[in-house]
């Protein structure tokens, strides 16, 4: 526990200001192995930031997914399914689980695990091609996952 806490703090130092960092990736309580019932932070989610993350930074969800609500943005990929209606298809806990570690819900999926820090082969330092030194920070922070979940919940219609 102490080690986990320390590594969570170390990860937080790179990724986000200390307070909002929430439950560490290794400490998440999984429900039926695929869903996460409780929010990862106790800060209210920011839907608008969730919308921005769909397009930017380590989220970049529309690299693979199409979303009609984001049709003003160019270049939606078609590797994954359209996310129209996901807020109706999946519960909040399931959406949180899919974002944190999609490989639990969809074994073998191409979708990256955005809130996992272990089990990678030759992890690099971001996009430098060099080996990562020290603790691996998750692709998204706990708060960013919550922001994205709150945005996905708004996608109710096909």
């Amino acid at each position: 526990m102490k080690r986990a806490l320390l590594s969570a703090i170390a990860a937080g130092l790179v990724a986000a200001p200390a307070l909002a960092q929430g439950i560490a990736p290794t400490q998440v309580a999984w429900e039926e192995e695929v869903a996460i019932a409780s929010p990862l932070t106790d800060t209210a989610p920011d839907v608008e930031n969730g919308r921005i993350l769909m397009n930017k930074g380590a989220g970049n969800c529309i690299a693979c997914h199409q979303v009609t609500d984001l049709a003003d943005l160019p270049f939606h990929g078609d590797i994954g399914p359209s996310l129209d209606g996901v807020g109706a298809r999946w519960s909040e806990a399931e959406l949180r689980g899919i974002l944190a570690d999609a490989k639990r819900m969809f074994p073998g999926t191409m979708m990256p695990s955005f809130y996992r820090t272990e089990g990678f082969v030759r992890v690099g330092e971001a996009y430098t091609g060099k080996a990562k030194e020290g603790e691996v920070a998750p692709l998204l922070t706990a708060q960013e996952i919550e922001d994205l979940v709150s945005y996905l919940k708004t996608l109710k219609y096909q």
Binding site: M110, P112, S113, F120, V121, R122, V123, G124, L139
Partner: peptide, 8 residues
């Protein structure tokens, strides 16, 4: 082999 943090 699925390399890196994106496991691709």
């Amino acid at each position: 082999t699925r390399f890196g943090q994106l496991e691709l």
